[in-house]
Design a protein around this nucleic acid. Sequence first.
DNA 1: CGACGTCACCGTAGTTGTGA
DNA 2: TCACAACTACGGTGACGTCG
Length: 280
Amino acid sequence: MKKATPILILLNNFCVSQVSEEYQNGVWHCIFAFHSNHMPQFSNIPPLLLVTRNPKLQTIPNLHNDLHMIYNLGWKAKEKDIPQGSSRDESEGNSNDLQPSQSVLPVLYQDLNCLPYEEDVSDSEFQDNEMNDESLPGFTEKKKRTPSDHIAKIALSDLIKYFDMPIVEASRHLNVGLTVLKRKCREFGIHRWPHRKIKSLDNLIHDLQEEAKQQESKDKAAAMAVTERKRMLESEKENIEKKPFMDIQTETKRFRQDVFKRRHRARASEKRSSTPAAAT
DNA sequence: CGACGTCACCGTAGTTGTGA
DNA sequence: TCACAACTACGGTGACGTCG
């Protein structure tokens, strides 16, 4: 029985002033720390951080670019230091002079989609990571249980793609059951599927688009105001897509209520004007 | 035996209608 | 015109059967 190694690294010897740069990418925080006086020597990108080795990493935006950035940072620093005659091609996977030296950093073998201390991932897992036939579109037989590795692969970025549809439809597209999708939502801090919020904002944006078109020829200033409001709603929608737990702003709710009222008035007056004609 | 899928029921957000 | 009631669609939850 294998036991995974802990991924926690003590940073006792670091002080905050030595942290020179930080880079944040979406919901993921990648913290890469090393002592400024003791630059690590990178032989290559750790295999587990390569998409070819670990397909789950495809869900992390820009991971590949970021790793290369970090890798180059290390090399630049190293070039300034004591030049050692290795080639840079290793970043592309050609690690022909990869030799275990005492200064090469230990590589993490923790699967980033699992909790630490879980059983180590065996190599065979990577081999049967491919989509099975049941998950392909067009497969109509009774729904089989979703494999746990497929569930583990689902990232927040996958969910975001389906926020504009009902949760049931989203679960179908993601090829998991409702139970699993809802559990994933809680994991990511989403307590309510934001479809209705987004649909409601979409309707308002659509209405404003129509209104802006109509105002364009009549009143330029009014058209500008409508376009500005539309832009605000679009940014609010984007915010909700990024932070699905966010509520619709009070101001927007008020505006929405106004739109409903106007719509209702228009319908009522339309009904009034059409009723006598219908009666005759 | 634990995790998943499905279903029924309930609650509520969003929308529409109505009476003062 | 506005506040509030009513309606509707959809999400949450729990129970239960099934599967790996």
